[in-house]
Computed example of a mutant assay.
Amino acid sequence: MAEKDQQVYPLPVSTNTQAKHDEDEEAGTVLSKEAGTVPSKELRKKRMKCLAYVVAFAVFQIGIILVFALTVMKIKTPKFRVRSATFESFNVVTTTSAPSFDMKMNAELGVKNTNFGHYKFDNSTIYFFYKGTQVGSAFVSKARARARSTKKFNVVVDLTTTNLPSNSGLGDDFNSGVLQLTSQSELKGKVELMKVMKKKKSTEMSCTLTISLADKAIRDLNCR
């Protein structure tokens, strides 16, 4: 009976062993927290960096589109000009009673196309005037001015005073030694970009030619 009533008591745990166990649990908790926190910060940094790259790329793309739209896609009006002129024949009658002239002029014309596409223009006519009265004309054949280039061609013009009125004041100009003519014309055509986009464009010529009677040559040529 004494053996049955005997109780068994657990061995006491030393204070040092319990403290060490608590420290191990606390360290494990700290490590587990750090292990979960560090990857989260790195992930946020990577996401922010990726977002910055996406925004920078979008801004770059928008810039490229704007530059393309303002340069390549912007269609400008070509310029039509008299570039130079020489005379094959030069006959001038300076008598005060019936002053007149009869000239054959070889004029070089130019169509300056600053667009990034071809400019195709139709047939046209260039007219020459003396004080508002037509004294000559020439036919301009249809052609094409290449992208960002100047199409040059020549026309021969017969200039004569047949239609001039008697009070035109031609004698006064002869006395001054210079003769001033003006030229006018209009070209109608289309600018073609990348064989896809086509836009109608018309260009007008307005030039003033000052002829030296003594030199039988163009002294001044001004176009606008």
Rank of each mutant, 00 (worst) to 15 (best):
M1C: 12
M1V: 13
A2F: 15
A2H: 15
K4H: 14
Q6H: 15
L11E: 11
P12L: 11
V13C: 07
T15A: 12
T17E: 13
A19S: 15
H21K: 10
E25C: 10
A27N: 13
G28C: 04
G28Q: 04
S32P: 02
E34T: 12
V38N: 02
K41L: 04
E42R: 07
E42G: 08
R44V: 01
K45A: 06
K45C: 08
Y53E: 07
V59T: 15
I64M: 15
L66Y: 11
V67A: 15
F68N: 15
A69N: 15
L70V: 14
K74H: 10
K74P: 05
K76A: 07
K76Q: 08
T77N: 00
P78E: 06
K79F: 01
F80W: 04
R83H: 12
S84D: 04
A85T: 06
F87N: 02
F90V: 02
F90D: 02
F90P: 03
V93H: 10
S97D: 11
P99A: 03
S100E: 06
K104I: 08
M105F: 00
M105S: 07
A107G: 01
N113S: 04
T114F: 04
N115I: 08
N115W: 08
G117H: 04
H118L: 08
H118V: 08
Y119Q: 01
K120L: 07
F121E: 03
I126N: 04
F128L: 02
F129Y: 07
F129K: 02
K131N: 09
T133W: 10
V135H: 09
F139I: 12
F139L: 15
R144H: 13
A147R: 08
A147G: 05
S149D: 10
K152V: 08
F153T: 00
F153I: 02
N154D: 09
N154S: 06
V156Q: 13
V156W: 02
L159P: 07
T162D: 12
N163H: 04
N163F: 02
L164M: 00
P165E: 04
S168R: 02
G169Q: 01
D172F: 13
F174D: 09
S176G: 12
T182F: 11
S185E: 12
K190M: 07
L193N: 04
K195F: 05
M197D: 06
K200N: 12
K200L: 11
T203I: 00
E204T: 03
M205D: 08
C207T: 13
T208W: 00
T208R: 09
I211S: 00
L213Y: 13
K216C: 10
I218A: 11
R224W: 06
